[in-house]
Amino acid sequence: MTTDVWLPFPADEIAGLPGASDSGLNYRFWDGGPEFPADPADCVFYVVPYMKATEIAVRPLPAMASLRAVQTLTAGIDHVEPGLKFLAPGVRLCNAKGVHEASTAELALALTLASLRGIPGFVEGQRQEEWRSGFYPALADKSVLIVGYGSIGSAIEDRLAPFECARVARVARSARATERGPVHPLADLPSLLPEADVVVVSTPLTDTSRGLVNADFLAHMKDGALLVNVARGPVVDTKALLAELESGRITAALDVTDPEPLPAGHPLWHAPGVLISPHVGGSTSAFEPRAKRLLAAQLTRYVSGEPLDNVVLTTQ
């Protein structure tokens, strides 16, 4: 019977992990290095290394003949989807819901405030020893639209609550009701976008969301609006966004880009009205303790035969 579990942290650093002697599991540490820690064929539970390229994440999958569960440490699963075709039916793929909400929502708010209040210009002014006083936009009294209202979108709204926004509207793949108000379907975007001063994109990357923020989407945004992307780069059509930025009609704050990493010399670096952070929404001090708690809980469920949390799909 195969019982290997591949972890991107040493097992003795994860509090609450089922003991090897009691559970019968063999914990193997692998963080994406060139050498596998053991025969992939013996792995039953694979935790995908964090912040590694797709080719690294999927490299052991074709040989994992005994695999029963794949656990990502990201909210999105797009980086492991290319490897799912190699897996036997019945393998559960779980995401990291609950790990990144706090830090990603925090960055979404930081990017929004920094862009509206002119922080990048103040930093440049400090370098140039220039006192750039004046009136700047505030988040107060603004209308905000959150596109992608899952757990991260909800966490973003949590953090908007004290800022006296005039309105927060929500969009997801399908309509539903929440305690805060209605969640609109994607089909309502043409009527919602012209009313929003700030549009925050926090949707996962799927076939539906790829290129969602295209020329038509951007054209529906009001003059002077701010686009904030903390989702995935390919959700936004970079060429269409550049055209709008260069016209000066809208501004943008981007934690993710397409391509990514953004290469030197790319016009997006120097487009007017854009603030770029290097995909750091989830990679903060908040990540590791939450990730380890998730792994301890998931493996405890696995050992006891209980259903795993955060199951996104099961291979067919």
Rank of each mutant, 00 (worst) to 15 (best):
Glu260Thr: 10
His266Pro: 10
Val171Thr: 08
Phe45Glu: 04
Asn229Cys: 04
Gly24Thr: 13
Val58Asp: 01
Thr203Asn: 05
Gly305Phe: 14
Gln126Thr: 14
Gly224Lys: 02
Asp216Cys: 13
Leu116Tyr: 05
Pro272Thr: 01
Val198Met: 05
Leu93Tyr: 01
Gly19Arg: 14
Ala41Leu: 10
Ala264Glu: 15
Arg159Pro: 09
Asn95Gln: 11
Ile276Gly: 03
Pro162Asn: 09
Leu295Arg: 00
Arg59Tyr: 02
Gly83Leu: 06
Ala169Glu: 06
Leu113Asn: 11
Val235Pro: 02
Pro89Trp: 06
Ala271Asn: 06
Tyr302His: 12
Arg92Tyr: 05
Pro120Val: 09
Asp223Ile: 13
Arg301Gly: 12
Leu262Pro: 07
Leu107Ile: 12
Glu288Gly: 00
Leu295Tyr: 00
Trp6Val: 15
Gln298Asp: 06
Leu113Asp: 08
Ala166Glu: 04
Val280Ser: 05
Leu111Trp: 04
Leu189Pro: 04
Arg170Thr: 14
Phe217Leu: 09
Ala252Trp: 03
Arg293Met: 06
Pro49Ile: 03
Val280Arg: 05
Ser277Ala: 13
Ser115His: 04
Glu124Ser: 15
Pro263Arg: 11
Tyr27Leu: 14
Ala175Gln: 10
Thr112Arg: 05
Leu93Trp: 01
Phe36Arg: 12
Met221Lys: 04
Ser283Gln: 02
Cys94Leu: 09
Glu101Asp: 13
Pro267Cys: 08
Glu246Arg: 14
Glu13Tyr: 01
Ala69Met: 10
Ile56Ala: 11
Tyr46Ser: 04
Ala63Val: 07
Ala175Leu: 05
Ala53Glu: 06
Asp216Leu: 15
Pro185Lys: 03
Gly83Gln: 09
Met1Asn: 09
Pro261Met: 12
Ala57Asp: 04
Thr238Gln: 02
